[in-house]
Design a binder for these strands. Structure first.
Length: 235
DNA sequence: CGACTTTGACCCGCGC
DNA sequence: GCGCGGGTCAAAGTCG
C-alpha cells in the first residue's frame, strides 16, 4: 500500500468568494483508521486512485471502514461531505489528509489518459476561465476518482438523481445527482471511465449546509449510551 | 404515498 | 446563425 502517493484530485472554483473547502486540518492524522472513517468513503471493496494508476497500488478500503473506534477517533465530518482536504493557495494544490503530500498540481502539460480525463481537464479549464470573469457565480468543485465496482458510492449523504446523459467518446453515461436535503444545493456527477471501467469519477459541486445524516445515525445511539453511562447515579 | 429513478425534451454556451 | 455537447427539467414509472 503506497500511502505516500497522492490521490488523483482536482479542485475547481478556488480563490472565490464562495466558502472555501473545509480546511485545513490541524495536524496530519496519525491514526490509520482516519481514512476509513470518513463518512463519504465508499464500500469496503472500493479504493482511492492514485495519480499513477498503473504503477501505484490502490488503497483498498478494508472492513475497518466502519470500525466505530475509527469513526470516533476521526476528525468531524466536513460540511461538504468530501474529504478533509488541505488546500495550498500558493501553489494551487490540494492534499489528501493521511497521505503524506506529493500533491497533484493541475497542469496543462499533463498527459490525459482518456477522453473522460480530457473532458474533465477541459471542464476545469473552462470553469477556471469563466470564474475569472465572474467570480461570484462559482462554487467549489472537487473531482476525484475511486476504484469501485459500484457506481453509487455511499458518502453518507442522500442524493436524488435528476439526470443522466451519454457522454461523447465514452460508452458510459454520466449521472447527475442533487443532495436530497431540502435546503442543500450540493450536486455531484458520477461517471465511469471507459478506459478503465473499474474507475468511477465523482465530481462534487458545492458545500453541504447540514450534517451528514448517516454519521448522525451512527453516532446518536452511541451518544445516548454515553449520556446514560455518565449520568449521575443516586445512591 | 412519498421518495426516488428514468428518460426524452429543452436550454444554453461554445466553436465553427 | 447553426450544430453540437453538456446540464437541467419534468412527467411518468418504480419501489418500499
Amino acid at each position: 500500500m503506497n500511502l505516500r502517493s497522492s490521490p488523483l484530485l482536482f479542485m475547481e472554483g478556488r480563490d472565490q468568494e464562495t466558502p472555501p473547502l473545509p480546511l485545513p486540518i490541524p495536524s496530519p492524522p496519525t491514526n490509520p483508521s482516519f481514512l476509513f472513517a470518513q463518512p463519504h468513503l465508499p464500500s469496503p471493496n472500493s479504493s482511492l486512485i492514485f495519480p499513477n494508476i498503473s504503477h501505484s497500488q490502490p488503497l483498498v478500503l478494508q472492513d475497518n471502514l466502519h470500525d466505530l473506534l475509527g469513526l470516533l477517533s476521526a476528525p468531524p465530518p466536513t460540511p461538504s461531505g468530501i474529504p478533509n482536504i488541505a488546500h495550498d493557495n500558493t501553489n494551487d494544490q490540494i492534499m489528501m489528509p493521511s497521505l503524506e503530500t506529493a500533491p497533484l498540481t493541475i497542469s496543462d502539460n499533463a498527459v490525459a489518459r482518456s477522453p473522460e480525463e480530457v473532458a474533465i481537464k477541459d471542464k476545469i479549464r473552462r470553469a477556471a476561465s469563466s470564474s475569472s470573469k465572474n467570480r461570484k457565480n462559482t462554487v467549489p468543485k472537487v473531482v476525484f476518482q475511486t476504484r469501485s465496482p459500484d457506481d453509487i458510492l455511499d458518502d453518507g449523504y442522500r442524493w436524488r438523481k435528476y439526470g443522466q446523459k451519454s457522454v461523447k467518446n465514452s460508452k458510459y453515461p454520466r449521472s447527475y445527482y442533487r443532495c436530497s436535503h431540502h435546503t442543500c444545493n450540493v450536486k455531484k456527477q458520477v461517471q465511469r471511465l471507459s478506459k478503465d471501467t473499474s474507475i468511477v469519477v465523482t465530481t462534487y459541486e458545492g458545500i453541504h449546509n447540514h450534517p451528514c445524516e448517516k454519521l448522525m445515525e451512527t453516532l446518536s445511539p452511541l451518544l445516548e449510551q454515553i449520556q446514560f453511562l455518565t449520568r449521575p447515579v443516586l445512591m
